[in-house]
Design a protein around this nucleic acid. Structure first.
Lengths: 174, 174
DNA sequence: GACACAGACTTGACTGATTCAAGAAAAGGA
DNA sequence: TCCTTTTCTTGAATCAGTCAAGTCTGTGTC
């Protein structure tokens, strides 16, 4: 978890001005991988007091296009962000609760796969999303819930990370 | 391209009632792979006259959960649908214009990849999205457009399929 | 062929993530 | 410290998608 000084340094090295919202957002994304925008807004407000949601949207976009964070958006989910950008890794998403976990890419660098026929596209990334059921959901008796990809809004998709049993902390899930 | 009789048969074999909106939607998805919901609504109305958007949403969901069509939603795009469901194939998405093309999966059946560490998830599918620039966009001089994944709404993302140069027909792109 | 009923469609309102735009505030170089 | 440029605030708007209540219609049964 980078310190505030490191966060500042990271921002400056990307030629981004250092502002309180930016520091707080970058901190939050480091601390809560796969958090959705709303959770990040709440977390930033917990740190700084009132901050406009627009500011957080702007910051997330600035950090994303500077390559400091990465935006992921599995089918049927809202946008989520993570600070792990140095490597080329992939994600496992739970169809039931939307929890996201990281998966290392065995190749390591993008694109890690080559399609058999690229149709003339210049490919720079192969994004892999593994779909399945997380340990918590497969253990819980309410296994009859609608699945995420089929009916997105039925599932508590705003779970910002893996559910309670997992190691990553869970931001708010409203 | 299945005939109307075949469409009817497909619906019945999935134990779905045969209604005009369902026939039209399934027809449309067969005819325009990777079309977004709005394009499908327009196309259905072209065939049938006025049909409520809610009906089309309902039909798309019914067909999806019956396994007759597949919903895909690359990061930063709206939902798109395709009728190619028998195999396990993947997609190439253009970062610039959002065009989608199919890529065969060399394994063929899901999940075609196994993650090095599944974190206890029961994985049933590996969805691969190749990101790149399509031939049309890399040929066009306006190559400085914002990229799709970074700033979704800047690109004409509603292109329902590959751009003009490609073989698939293009539905409206509003 | 007529009837009944569950399932499908219409209508209209609503939600929620995200974006737009204009003006105020603040970061950072001169 | 001042000035310029960028960022943040405020408030409204957009757009995909959903909800809910009532009407209609496909389909099995008589």
């Amino acid at each position: 978890m980078p310190s505030s000084q490191e966060i500042e340094r990271i921002l400056r090295s990307a030629e981004l001005r250092v502002t309180r919202p930016r520091v707080a957002v970058l901190h939050s994304v480091h601390q809560h991988p796969h958090a959705d925008t709303n959770s990040i807004i709440d977390d930033v407000r917990r740190r700084l007091g009132e901050v406009s949601h627009q500011a957080v949207y702007d910051v997330l976009q600035a950090l994303t296009s500077a390559g400091l964070i990465r935006r992921i958006q599995p089918s049927g989910s809202v946008a989520r962000y993570e600070a792990r950008v140095a490597d080329n890794h992939h994600h496992i998403v739970c169809r039931s609760c939307g929890a996201v976990a990281d998966v290392d890419c065995s190749v390591g660098f993008a694109p890690c796969l080559t399609p058999p026929e690229a149709h003339g596209y210049a490919i720079d990334e192969a994004e892999v999303i593994y779909w399945g059921i997380c340990p918590t959901c497969s253990a819980s008796p309410s296994g009859s819930r609608e699945l995420l990809a089929a009916t997105p809004k039925d599932a508590p998709q705003l779970l910002s990370t893996t559910p309670a049993s997992a190691s990553e902390p869970q931001l708010h899930t409203h």
